[in-house]
Design a binder for these strands. Sequence first.
DNA 1: CTGAATCCCTTTTGATACTG
DNA 2: CAGTATCAAAAGGGATTCAG
Lengths: 125, 125
Amino acid sequence: MDTDLPQTYASGCPSRTVVDVLANKWVLYVLSVLNSSARPLRFTELRRHIEGVTQKSLTQALRNLERDGLISRTVYPTIPPRVEYARTDLGADIGRLTAEIADWSRSNARRILAARATYDAPESA
Amino acid sequence: MDTDLPQTYASGCPSRTVVDVLANKWVLYVLSVLNSSARPLRFTELRRHIEGVTQKSLTQALRNLERDGLISRTVYPTIPPRVEYARTDLGADIGRLTAEIADWSRSNARRILAARATYDAPESA
DNA sequence: CTGAATCCCTTTTGATACTG
DNA sequence: CAGTATCAAAAGGGATTCAG
């Protein structure tokens, strides 16, 4: 692409606030899970698919994504309450990318953990 | 892909530790900048291309990436010292993805900020 | 120039309890 | 079920100082 002109990320650029939202592991997982789901998912379903996330962190991730128009939140006023989350058209685009990152992490975890072990090893030498 | 089987991210999965490293805005920017650069970059050059990052945060991001084998760090024992960072083959793969995320964020910042404004607006009503 | 080390404050996170 | 509220613990970030 460039021959010698790396990209510069300006601090005032609005897109930085978007990256700020995306640069969060729970947000990445939510987008990735919804990306691989053919139907909307309920809060508890999402939580089951993202092991280790607390209710609080998941709620916050969902709020941020809803605020940015990347996912939709639908409340069914039943008892007990039923809330469904789905990706929007906008969220589907970025969801594909985050899913690719999650896939890549799975595919290359072995190599990365090996590099990590090598890096950490000399400390005990 | 799936008809009704969303992906599950298990808490014990090693790939989770990889995502933990990637889910950081400075890490995303470093990978993206190196992805768009044809040559290795020095510490100060990187810092110039990622406005707002402090020395401490940049150093930490670079260490994490080096540890995971995603970037290489080369020290030239000159005076003053010269240190160059470059993407590894492994880092190039993920760098393309992070660059896509940064690009997407720029391209869609307008729409996202609009959604954000709409979401925040009712609070003053 | 490229950091490491420190202090200090803010933010995030986890755990727990409670509500419609 | 799907949250909110709260408190304590942990992590993150900025500013500064020092060093090879």
